[in-house]
Amino acid sequence: MSLRLITSLVVILFLQLFFFNAISLYDTAFAFVFVMILLLLPLDWDYKVLITVAFSIGILVDISILKLGIHASSSILIVTLRGFWIDIITPQINPNEKLNFKPHAQSLSWIISYFTPLIFVYSLIYHLLSDLHFTLNTFWKFFATGFYSTLLIILIYSLFIKTSDKR
């Protein structure tokens, strides 16, 4: 994990805490840009370290929106699920290579197929946990948040992360 990538991810976390939290659309579509950090965390990290970092990031975002625990729980789940999803979309890599596998080094089309479903799953977990039931309103929030966050994450990734990593 390069220093540039680490810096970019820290900046994204700060932006999430002080900017993206405030730009929700009609209280329906929320910008969960920090999910990108969770998805780009190195695969070679120990699982316990990985979920502790995910939990800490989630708690930080929770504190910033005064909804303690919801992002923390969703973050732990999503970093656990991402390994399974990589196995599905990249069946050619073997378990030994997987530790050295770098998502940010892959093509943009792979990144889109990696990010999109997981961001939608994150949105679903978050809204289910937030509403504690599934109504049409929950569905709209899940869909709008998934779509809005995916759009912002792909945009930010292709404009800043991908290019900064190439340099």
Binding site: I51, I59, L68, G69, A72, S73, I76, T80, L132
Partner: peptide
Amino acid sequence: FFIFLQWISLFLVFRFNDF
């Protein structure tokens, strides 16, 4: 460890959110 962290998260959810 996953269960432990989930338990902490859910405890926070149900302890500190009025709804």
